[in-house]
């Protein structure tokens, strides 16, 4: 599935929620379902420290595709992390670099990804793209 198609799917899913608290309920559910990463991966190297919450991000490159693993100490942030992983996991580096993440705006999570929130998410998205750029460069 393309990054665009997955984003559209998420947008449609979220359009069913009438209330913000329902959206958060769903994000909490996603956050709880996101597999915990290895304690070893919760390293300083993988830590993206926000003032408000912490995010850990690790990546792997296998057969031309990027695979992310991530975690956060806050559940709603984990839920948003789960969405980002759902959209970008298993995609070729070029796709990750070229596509913008318009779903964030569309489902009303923009404020959670604003630089002033300091929750680690903005830096996480940036780091995901940087991983893709690095992997693409490796391919030449």
């Amino acid at each position: 599935m393309s990054i665009k198609a997955i984003q559209d799917e998420i947008i449609e899913e979220f359009s069913m929620f009438e209330d913000w608290l329902d959206k958060y309920d769903y994000l909490i559910e996603l956050g709880n379902e996101l597999p915990e990463i290895d304690p070893g991966q919760k390293s300083d190297e993988n830590l993206i420290s926000g003032c408000q919450s912490k995010v850990w991000l690790d990546a792997e490159y296998k057969e031309g595709k990027v695979w992310f693993q991530a975690d956060s100490d806050a559940i709603i942030v984990r839920g948003i992390v789960a969405l980002l992983i759902k959209v970008l996991n298993g995609q070729p580096p070029k796709e990750i670099i070229d596509n913008d993440l318009h779903f964030i705006d569309e489902i009303g999570l923009k404020q959670n990804l604003s630089p002033t929130r300091s929750n680690g998410l903005v830096a996480m998205v940036k780091k995901m793209k940087l991983y893709a750029i690095a992997y693409q460069a490796k391919e030449g």
Binding site: Q52, D73, A74, I75
Partner: peptide
């Protein structure tokens, strides 16, 4: 054991302004 940031985000949507963090 709720993360303060999680609680603050939900309270915000209920119209309640608190601060979370350090």
């Amino acid at each position: 054991d709720i993360h303060p940031y999680d609680a603050g985000m939900v309270l915000d949507k209920m119209g309640i302004a608190v601060r979370t963090g350090t």
